[in-house]
Design a protein around this nucleic acid. Structure first.
Length: 434
RNA sequence: UCCCCGAUAGCUCAGCUGGUAGAGCGGGUGACUGUUAAUCACCAUGUCCCAGGUUCGAGUCCUGGUCGGGGAGCCA
């Protein structure tokens, strides 16, 4: 008799029918003539009840000796049950072990973060990590849908690059045949500027690498970034694009995962529901004033650290856009404000609740002579930027864009303490395994 | 690179002013027809991170190291 093979997520359609479930044993309890098996298949968890009277004595004994994460096929009848968090359970008729697991390292009790990170390949099986992985997938899909539906073309930027894009952060070096030293990309932006001149609206979405020795909850050495770039776009329009993207992603995640965020991750989703465009905009100078009023010894010209970002972000109920930073704090390619050359046409989006900068971007310098001078001021190798300067030689136009960090966004939406849980296999200063 | 904290059973941790190691979980055995981190009884388990030092005696105190965690700078 061939039973329908069903995923737990679809179990409601099979009430009172016999089905086969294929999964792993999440946990097990026992009570005399009953064994309660929590079966997990990646789509959900269901309680499979083995009653002594329903199965052979051998099977009943076997069911009481299954190790955690044993893979198994379970056949039985789907029953509605008010006691089940799922609403249904399975009355087991037959059970077949695919592989008997013994001594699974992650028990249902608490574990330390270091231990869990070392067992990341197994930790992914837990309910919390399952939800986080799914939220991440939804965030990525929502970002792609947003740009694809808005006239953007996906353009992949290279991962190997010949030189530093921004000349600021430390890069990973890679030997590259006879051409000497190559580097892992820290941003696809310069390439997106070329793409924007070709396609009008372009975005790239890929991994990014920073060799900074950063040990904080907001840093990874390998992370994912989406970087749109648009021709004929100004800073003001850039901010509109950023707030539209962020609110669209947040709304999508709430629609799809609102219940899991609340139930499994204990996230206060009311704070996410407030995240709708427009976002408040303040200038860097206003931000400094706000910090000073809040008792922070911030001076005009200082960059913001994590503390400053948190103080500012806490003054608003949704992400806040800080724009027009001092030119000295920004990379060479930012255009200066014609109204005040001391500030650059750059903007950052700070997430609420202390999650910090999730977006950084702005309007690019489009004048050849100015850009050449900036490259010189920053002591950057001019040869490496030959092709980039061509973009200002042949039909240069005002243009702008930004980069959004996927891990920080997921961390914020899920309410996590550390971005390492937002990426399947985190790469950090002191961790490259598993 | 800098600052703070930590390392004891498979895991999470306790271990007082220095006297020779212990609880929960997990594992094993048994009891129970409704458990939701089930409960109850019993059983087994240690390079107390490493190397020196002080001491009659070090898991405990001192010095150095290793590894890890948190934070800063930098950034998304």
């Amino acid at each position: 008799m061939a039973l329908p093979v069903v995923r737990i997520a679809d179990i409601a359609q099979y009430e009172n029918q016999d089905v086969e479930l294929r999964g792993w044993l999440y946990s097990r309890r026992s009570s005399g003539k009953l064994h309660f098996l929590q079966l997990r298949d990646g789509s959900g968890i269901i309680q499979a009840v083995v009653f002594k009277g329903d199965v052979s004595p051998e099977l009943f004994t076997q069911a009481d000796h299954l190790g955690q994460e044993t893979s198994l096929l379970v056949r039985g009848t789907v029953r509605k049950d008010a006691r089940s968090p799922l609403g249904f359970e399975l009355g087991v008729k037959d059970l077949q072990v695919v592989h008997a697991a013994d001594g699974y390292p992650i028990t249902p009790k608490e574990h330390g973060v270091a231990y869990l990170m070392e067992n990341r390949h197994l930790w992914l099986r837990s309910t919390r990590q399952n939800v986080i992985l799914r939220v991440r997938a939804t965030v990525v899909k929502a970002i792609r849908d947003f740009f694809d539906n808005d006239g953007f073309t996906l353009v992949d930027a290279p991962i190997f690059t010949p030189a530093a894009c921004e000349g600021t952060s430390t890069l990973f070096e890679v030997p590259y045949f006879d051409l000497g030293q190559a580097y892992l990309t820290q941003s696809g932006q310069l390439y997106m500027e070329a793409a924007a001149m070709a396609l009008g609206k372009a975005y790239c979405f890929g991994p990014t690498f920073r060799a900074e020795k950063s040990k904080t909850r907001r840093h990874l050495t390998e992370f994912w970034m989406v970087e749109p770039e648009v021709a004929y776009m100004t800073l003001e329009e850039d901010m509109v694009l950023a707030e539209r993207l962020v609110s669209s992603v947040v709304q999508r995640v709430l629609e799809k995962h609102g219940a899991e965020l609340k139930g499994v991750l204990e996230r206060d989703t009311s704070k996410l529901e407030a995240v709708k465009a427009p976002f408040p905009r303040i200038t860097y100078s206003e931000a400094i004033e706000r910090l000073q009023k809040a008792g922070h010894p911030a001076q005009w010209g200082d960059d913001f650290g994590g503390d400053e970002e948190t103080v500012l972000a806490n003054q608003f109920d949704r992400p806040v856009i800080v724009h027009r930073y001092p030119t000295d704090l920004k990379a060479f390619y930012f255009k200066r404000d014609p109204a005040n050359p001391k500030v650059a046409l750059g903007m950052d989006v700070l997430a609420p609740e202390g999650y910090g900068e999730i977006i950084g971007g702005g309007q690019r310098e489009d004048d050849l002579a100015t850009l050449e001078a900036r490259i010189e001021e920053h002591h950057l190798p001019k040869e490496a930027f030959g092709w980039y300067l061509d973009l200002r030689r042949y039909g240069s136009v005002p243009h702008a864009g930004f980069g959004l960090g996927v891990e920080r966004t997921v961390g914020w939406l899920c309410g996590l303490h550390h971005v390492r849980e937002t990426i399947p296999f985190a790469r950090m200063m002191e961790r490259i395994t598993p």
